[in-house]
Computed example of a mutant assay.
Amino acid sequence: MRPTKYLLGFVMHLAFNLVSSTMDKRGCVDFYDPAAGGGSMLIDAGGGYGEPLNVIISGLSSPAVLTYDGAINYARAIGFSEECFGLHLGGLMSANLGDGDGWVNQTIEIRQDYGSAGAGTCLESLIGGNHFRIFVQNGTAADSGALFLAASKEEPLTENHDIVPDGYDIGRNNLVTGAVGRTSYGGVKYSTIAQNITGLLAAGSDGVNHGIAQDGIVTLLTVTII
């Protein structure tokens, strides 16, 4: 019976090491380049076109920021909130972050709240403004835990929420401006630093939705709860 006991112990030890190895990916890197795993920095907007993933919240951020509820609370701290009455109009978009999960629908869409986390996003739905979609890099092939955001500024409802001219760069810049430094919401205080990265996203309008050119800059945000 002893060989069986030793074999069982060896198998359990091996399984523990495999699980630990997978878990250790979290909190070790800012993100993994989606292209390295067959993914893309353009989300699928339909019709063969995409929208840029132009902001990344680093996997080295405080773990609580990288959860569903934590991301929403952080969004409220930087001037955004959930959609009006929690209702999403229009189709969902998907992204392939090269993490082994293939094309996955957005986790949530967040809109500018015009100073009111409760009702401000209803105003954004009417008059337009900034918004972003969140995608999580958490597949077993590249589990950084990073949040990839597709940010843009959109037209009012009367213009069918089309993206404004230069709206991808404007949306990214507005989001980053509101995020950098110290912010807070719901008793949670954040400190955010930003770094611009080139080489992940090709500049220009090739394959980009609405034919709107963007500058190819992706801003990496590292968010620390203080």
Rank of each mutant, 00 (worst) to 15 (best):
L157Y: 12
R172L: 13
L7S: 07
P165L: 14
Y68I: 11
Q214P: 05
N96I: 04
E82D: 13
D44K: 09
P3A: 12
Y185G: 05
A36G: 02
L89Y: 14
S58V: 04
G128W: 03
G139H: 11
I197E: 09
A45Y: 10
H131G: 02
V180K: 11
G199N: 10
Y185C: 10
L97Q: 04
L60D: 00
H161G: 08
L200T: 03
S205E: 10
L18V: 13
L175Y: 14
G79R: 02
L87T: 03
G90I: 08
F10L: 15
K25D: 08
G27L: 06
Q214S: 08
G129F: 04
Y190N: 05
Y74D: 01
G37K: 03
L157S: 15
T224W: 00
V104T: 08
I72D: 07
R111M: 11
L42V: 01
M41S: 03
L175K: 14
D44P: 09
T22N: 09
I170A: 15
N130Q: 13
D99V: 03
R2F: 04
M41E: 02
S20L: 10
T183C: 11
A179V: 15
S40Y: 01
F80R: 00
K25L: 07
R2S: 05
L14M: 13
F85W: 08
P165T: 15
A213N: 03
D113E: 13
M12K: 10
A45K: 04
S94C: 01
F31I: 01
T198E: 12
K189G: 00
D215W: 02
A179C: 14
A71P: 00
W103T: 04
V104L: 07
L147E: 08
Y32N: 05
L147T: 05
L60I: 03
L89E: 08
Y74E: 05
D169Q: 14
G199L: 10
E124H: 03
G27A: 06
D24S: 14
T22R: 01
I134N: 07
A119R: 10
G118T: 08
S58Y: 07
G86Y: 11
V208F: 06
W103N: 08
E159P: 01
N73E: 13
F132G: 02
L147V: 09
E154N: 15
I225A: 00
V55K: 03
I226W: 00
R26T: 08
I72C: 03
M23N: 06
G38T: 01
